[in-house]
Nucleic acid binder design. Structure first.
Lengths: 220, 220
DNA sequence: CGGCGGCTTGATCGGTCTCAAGTACGGTGG
DNA sequence: CCACCGTACTTGAGACCGATCAAGCCGCCG
């Protein structure tokens, strides 16, 4: 058991993340991936571009979206540090991705990953699991669209809170417009709803991008 | 089972996918699956039930949905003959599934499938591909929620038309309420919108469940 | 200090929901 | 074959929520 890591030919691990080292998938992307910085609002990839890479957020935040022909924008997901994205099937990306704030992204060549998956079933399984997790998140997100504006905003805050380190204090990296396009609302409605939640003492808004959850409507 | 680890080395990376007949995934589920009939409106599985099986529609139609605590229902997907569903990750189903009409469903034991995938990379890859395709459909579906009622209905009709045999003539197996819950509208709005489309000569409605697309708004 | 981007706030409009009837379809039994 | 009944669908009138349009405000950075 203690020699498990040693069996591998990789000698050095650049990013020491205790507990994850024995995960062959994480080890693999550490080896074959390379990180690139992206400035705020810079495009990482665009819709209908060849999907040659898979991406992992090291730092910052990413929004994944689609623009309709009349200009409306639908944000499908926000990716935070540790999240993997761009796992779509087919040769081209179905969505666009941009850095929400200055970010550091790990790029992993798709083909290399698939080659490794062909040799190592654990990696293949991890690819499947990650895709399934993404599917589940998407399914969960679809539920917000049958809810009222207030429910959507609350649901969003709870979602971000769950993914963050602290459960009751959130740092929102994205702008109001991003939240609006993620929830299918307008900027004004998001503002008004946040204000309303603040008035009813459900949350506090010390700054634009900082939210404190007072009473948890959903189970904390 | 101890020889599983050894497999990592002795297999070569080859992805022979010539035709569909030799598709090892479809062959496998034919072998280990067994088909069961489900009557109209009968539950196939329920939310938070253990997910022991993967399902394939042989005949009929299936709706996959979630009920919110206040009774609202969100239909995530309709599955038609040939579609595979229930591919979620985790031990339990995140959604419920029901037969829309009398249907014939193939049940495949999850564990058997995973075992086969562990031995045959092509099957593992197919599992991944199917999940990714489902993810893509879900992402596509999320886009309808930023559209107007009419756009949603048209988008729905086009989606069903694409999946059906004939491009311009659709047989809708589901009720109006199902369409409404799929599109995030009310029954009345779906009715009115269909009527409106009929008036504007975009469609014809010979019966409740039969639609003829006259002029294709979207590229046919 | 001035300008700009992002956020907030207000007034009004319109699309969709809600509630409430009315109608067509499909099955069942006489 | 027809009368009946329940379910699903259709249609109408009014209310309401969120979108839209239009200012105004704040914080940031030169």
């Amino acid at each position: 058991m203690p020699h498990l890591k040693r069996r591998r030919r990789d000698r050095k691990i650049t990013w020491p993340t205790p507990g994850v080292d024995s995960n062959p998938f994480q080890s693999a992307i550490k080896l074959i991936g390379f990180s690139i910085p992206f400035l705020k609002n810079v495009e990482i990839y665009a819709e209908s571009e060849p999907a040659d890479y898979v991406y992992k957020v090291i730092g910052g935040a990413v929004r994944c979206y689609k623009i309709l022909n009349d200009g409306r924008r639908q944000i499908n997901a926000f990716y935070l540090p540790g999240d993997i994205f761009g796992l779509e099937i087919g040769g081209v990306h179905a969505f666009s991705a941009e850095a929400v704030v200055d970010s550091k992204i790990l790029l992993i060549k798709r083909n290399s990953l698939i080659e490794i998956a062909a040799r190592d079933n654990r990696v293949a399984r991890e690819l499947w699991t990650l895709t399934a997790a993404e599917l589940q998140r998407m399914q969960q997100h679809a539920v917000v669209f049958i809810m009222s504006a207030q429910e959507r905003v609350v649901s969003f805050l709870v979602e971000i809170a769950k993914r963050g380190a602290t459960a009751s204090e959130i740092e929102l990296p994205m702008r109001r417009a991003d939240i609006a396009d993620y929830l299918g609302l307008t900027i004004e409605t998001v503002c008004r709803t946040l204000k309303q939640l603040e008035k009813s003492a459900a949350i506090e808004l010390p700054t634009f991008h900082h939210v404190v959850l007072r009473k948890c409507a959903a189970p904390c």
